[in-house]
Design a protein around this nucleic acid. Sequence first.
DNA 1: ATGCGGACCTGTTAGC
DNA 2: TGCTAACAGGTCCGCA
Length: 271
Amino acid sequence: MPELPEVETTRRGIAPHLQDRTIREVIVRQRQLRWLVPRNLNRLLQGQTIRQIQRRGKYLLLGMDAGSLILHLGMSGSLRILPAETPAEKHDHLDVILDSGQCLRLRDPRRFGAVLWTRDDPLQHKLLKTLGPEPLSDEFTGEYLWQRSRGRKLAIKSFIMDSKIVTGVGNIYANEALYLAGIHPLRAAGRLSRARYNQLVEAIRQVLIAAIRQGGTTLRDFTASDGKPGYFRQQLHVYERDQQPCDQCGRPLHHRVIGQRSSYYCTHCQR
DNA sequence: ATGCGGACCTGTTAGC
DNA sequence: TGCTAACAGGTCCGCA
C-alpha cells in the first residue's frame, strides 16, 4: 500500500497525538508479521515517553529514551489514532495505548509490515543502514543517480525502485515519475545521460511532493490516520490506466510487467 | 557484484 | 451463483 507519500501522510497525522505522550500499555495480537514482533514489547515500551516521530524511507521511527520502535507498513498496513477502548477488528495486530486515553493501532491484513525494537540508533539498524538517500534531500541529485547507474543493465524502473539506490519510490510513483520525465521504464539504467537523470530526479521530487500535498494516493484501502483517503489518485497519469489515452499525445497507454511489478507507460512519449 | 525469481499473506475482483 | 486464478501500494533472500 504505502509508498513514501502515504507514510509521510501517516507520520504527519499521528505525530501530534504521540509527541511527548507516555505509553501506558502495548497489546500485541499477532506476532507473525514480516518479522516476528518482539514478545516483550509491552515490557520494553511501558512507561516510555515518545520523544520523536520520524520517517526514513518507508519506515516510521518512534524515538524514546530506551530505544526506538521501528514500524513498516508493508503493502497493506495502516496506522490510526483511536480511543483506546475502540474494539479491535480483524487484522488489528498492535495497539500502543497512550496516557491520553488514545491508542495507536496498526492494521495490516497481508502482514508484510514490521514492528521492530532497537536500543541503538535506528538508522544503524540492519534494515535501515543500507538505504539510499531520501529522494527529497539534497543528496539525491541527477549526478548521484548517474554515477550509481554506470554499468548497470537493469531497467531504469527497477533501478529507481531499489531502496539501496533511493528510498521511498514505490511502484505507483516510479511509473508516474518516468512518465513525467519522458523515460521508457525498460531503458537500461546505465544508458541514460546525466541530463536525463537530472530530469528524472526533478520528476521524482515533483510527484512525491505533489502526492504528499494531496495526502497520498488511495487506490483501494489507504487511509490516513484520521481515516480519510488520499486524493492524489486523480492526478495519476499512467498508473492503472492501461489502454486509456495518454494525456500528452492521446495514444493508448501500455501495460506490462517489469521486475514482477505492473508497469504503465506511453511508448510515444517515453523513450 | 549484479539481476532475477521466489517467498511471505490475505482480500478483492475478473473470468469461466 | 460459485469456484479458481490473478493481482494488489514492499522488499528480503538465495541462487545463478
